[in-house]
Design a protein around this nucleic acid. Structure first.
Lengths: 139, 139
DNA sequence: AAACACCTTAGAGTGCACTCTAAGGCAAGC
DNA sequence: GCTTGCCTTAGAGTGCACTCTAAGGTGTTT
């Protein structure tokens, strides 16, 4: 159970990445795989967690380049922990800034939808443009 | 003042899009421009607001295709308001879902950073893996 | 014996949204 | 009269992250 081996096809379904992508990531140094006596790749439980973690990082918007750098640092051992932390912090700050921006844009989009609703329900004067309407929400 | 004309170079700086992109957007039907007697493009105040609005939509992750469709509907007049509202609502829901997902990923990233800090400060046991550590936060 | 899942290297293709070049030309300002 | 800023069409190039094909191979299963 602890040493169940997954070949690439099975693993692919497990982690939700195509076999192409798995080989590509391995090529890029993001993933390691072991090989059986015939040279066929296999993965173990720990690899599922590792890919899962990578996907969390990717999901924050971290790019392959940074991911590669992170993995390289990791391979260099404990001396690079500070640098890794810093890299992740930068990624986190970036992601948070992007989200904040998106939310700002979403706010306007929300107002536009409300404006449509107001026009449809005639609770907003016909003569009021969206631009004028928006002014109401400038803090 | 109300009818100040901006040629593409000036307008470009004003809205933060390259002249290439402005012509591209016009090509794609997202922006309109007027022409002077020599056939030279010019924009007015209202165009600044329009581009601003487009950029808000883009900023939520709305793709050019949807943007084109939106603009096309707009050109068709008031009868398409319901459809436009629906399109924007879909874009909004999408964006919100994406943000929620990103925030979920960010949470893990945050835990990882905390884990590094714990390791560095020795407030997390040397033997505790990140995976084990993460379990603490499963709700 | 054929089908299936895997292996390799190398390179081409995809989708998106630009971004830029080429190669021609016009009009205004110094 | 030359530079600068603009115009056109058409098409090539960029960056990112895959995604797939080609063309060869091995080993297991039916």
């Amino acid at each position: 159970m602890a040493d169940k081996r997954y070949r690439i096809g099975e693993f692919s379904k497990l982690v939700g990445l195509s076999t192409y992508t798995l080989r590509y990531y391995e090529d890029q140094g993001l993933i390691l795989s072991q090989r059986d006596d015939n040279g066929v790749r296999y993965y173990v439980e720990e690899d599922i967690r590792w890919v899962g973690f990578i996907l969390h990082l990717k999901g924050t918007g971290m790019q392959l380049n940074d991911l590669k750098r992170y993995v390289k640092l990791r391979a260099e051992g404990d001396t690079t922990i500070a640098e890794r932390r810093q890299l992740l912090q930068r990624v986190k700050d970036n992601a948070e800034a992007e989200i904040a921006e998106q939310q700002m844009h979403l706010k306007v989009l929300g107002h536009k939808i409300d404006w449509y609703d107001g026009k449809t329900a005639h609770t907003i004067d016909d003569s009021e443009s969206f631009h004028d309407y928006l002014q109401r929400f400038q803090d």
